[in-house]
């Protein structure tokens, strides 16, 4: 496991999302129902920034063409073989870490 510091827990409120650069990767960190979820910020369709999309529950909608992804698994809801890369997260002592090994 290769854990990298992302943000302080208090920086992101419930239902919030924040684009981050971790180890050169454009990530999107989301806090939902008490958990933290990290996915690539680039839509696997045409690289649009998912941070500009809308979040409803555990589903984020890409702002460009409305593709829907489950932020927990990264799966595209219309074809689950297509995924936006999803990364593990953990919280320790008020800090959020992302596991960059997928």
């Amino acid at each position: 496991m290769v854990w990298f510091f992302a943000i302080d827990e208090i920086e992101l409120g419930e239902g919030g999302k924040k684009p981050l650069l971790v180890e050169g990767e454009k990530l999107l960190l989301i806090r939902q129902e008490g958990g933290f979820y990290a996915i690539s910020n680039k839509c696997p369709h045409m690289d649009c920034p998912l941070s500009k999309g809308t979040l409803e529950g555990f589903v984020i909608k890409c702002p460009c063409h409305d593709w829907l992804f489950d932020i927990r698994s990264g799966e595209f809801l219309n074809a689950r073989e297509i995924k936006v890369p999803a990364y593990g997260t953990k919280v320790a002592e008020g800090k959020v870490y992302v596991n960059m090994e997928r």
Binding site: M46, D47, I82
Partner: peptide, 10 residues
Amino acid sequence: TMFQRVIDPL
């Protein structure tokens, strides 16, 4: 390049 990435897993 982009579309190859999408269609391959399908």
